[in-house]
């Protein structure tokens, strides 16, 4: 892999220059809530929150939109395709490895048996530029093997102090560097040592650990465990964990009619398997009526069924669900207790 060096003194110039390519999305800090971060369109490179932790909503919101119009319909003209942001060229800048892994999972899900034209219209116009990070007490990407990325990015910036090492992941990334060659320099021996030192420091910074060895097997054995009922008593099934999850992709499709009663829109909108009406069918039968069944379904989808279907779990250890849960449910704690068989209600 080609690696070049970008001095921090030139990084804002680099960021500004990316606007020539298209819309640049960066993590920003909420002025009214210090320490709370969100992805948004960059207006000025000084808005970039270099030391950010996880954002509230992951960058999937730019690819799999929270709510989008997928067709406009009219009684005479039928259903006409609408693909929002179809022509928008966009750079997702500053993504941490966990979020890049999240997008890698969505890339597979939305193009397995059928290609989702909405996701892919946006995906093919999206550039991903990653950024190294240091974990906090809710990060467990190291346990999920998502703490580093070898692909899935166009460029990846690693912080080595005065400079960033910039790994080039694609030919498009190579072009982005080549077009701005004056900003970059060669990597020197000292930089390599700094990078290894950074890696060591980062590896030693993880405080949260989850043992995922043979976890699908253990979950399969624990299908009827009382743990799920206990969890069902705590979980409010509010769906916050799904909304903030980089890999949750469930959605619903529905129509809304305009006031003229002749035209309207077909909407595709995020949904969550935790919601009470999720498995409700016409006639009133609900296939997962109680909360325990729904919360269990979410855990099994992430850690069991995804492994069966795609070969790896769909949890990237970003810690957002731990942060977002109003009932204080911690996925690491739950899965650890499943393994130990030691769950007790709080």
């Amino acid at each position: 892999m080609k690696v070049v060096k970008l001095p921090k003194s030139k990084v804002e110039e680099f960021l500004s220059s990316l606007q020539d390519f298209g819309e640049v999305i960066i993590p920003k800090e909420k002025t009214e809530h210090p320490g709370v971060y969100y992805f948004d369109v960059m207006e000025n490179p000084s808005e970039m929150a270099w030391e950010y932790l996880r954002t509230i909503i992951p960058p999937k919101k730019y690819l799999h939109k929270p709510r989008e119009v997928i067709f406009k319909f009219h009684k005479e003209q039928g259903y006409q395709e609408v693909i929002e942001d179809k022509e928008t060229k966009r750079i997702l800048f500053g993504l941490h490895p966990c979020d890049i892994h999240g997008i890698k999972i969505l890339d597979v899900v939305f193009n397995r048996d059928y290609m989702d034209p909405y996701y892919y219209a946006r995906r093919k116009n999206t550039v991903i530029i990653g950024l190294s990070c240091l974990p906090d007490e809710k990060c467990f990407c190291k346990s999920m093997n998502t703490d580093y990325v070898e692909d899935g990015f166009d460029l990846f910036l690693s912080d080595i102090g005065e400079d960033f090492l910039v790994a080039v992941g694609t030919s498009l990334g190579d072009d982005l560097v080549a077009e701005r060659a004056h900003l970059f320099s060669e990597v020197e021996e000292e930089d390599r040592r700094k990078y290894l030192a950074f890696r060591k420091k980062r590896n030693e910074s993880f405080r949260l650990e989850l043992d995922i060895s043979d976890l699908p097997y253990i979950l399969d054995l624990e299908q009827k465990s009382p743990i799920w009922d206990e969890l069902g008593k705590r979980c409010l099934t509010c769906g916050s964990c799904s909304m903030v999850c980089p890999t949750c992709y469930c959605f619903n499709v529905y129509d809304t009619l305009n006031l003229d009663a002749k035209s309207g829109q077909r909407i595709k909108q995020w949904d969550a398997c935790l919601f009470k009406d999720y498995a409700l069918v016409a006639g009133g039968h609900n296939f997962r009526e109680n909360r325990a069944e729904r919360v269990k379904n979410r855990y099994y989808h992430k850690q069991f069924r995804m492994v069966e279907q795609y070969g790896k779990p769909s949890c990237v250890g970003c810690g957002r669900c731990i942060d977002a849960c109003p009932a204080g449910i911690d996925v690491v704690e739950v899965l650890t207790k499943v393994r130990e068989g030691s769950y007790v209600t709080h």
Binding site: D113, D116, F251, N252, L280, A282, R305
Partner: peptide
């Protein structure tokens, strides 16, 4: 086995039983 399939392509997630998407 019938559920409230919304996409029909094994994505939207409304129709799973175990690892199976009933729609697909």
């Amino acid at each position: 086995m019938n559920r409230n399939m919304s996409c029909g392509m094994g994505i939207c997630g409304r129709c799973n039983i175990g690892p199976y998407y009933l729609c697909k």
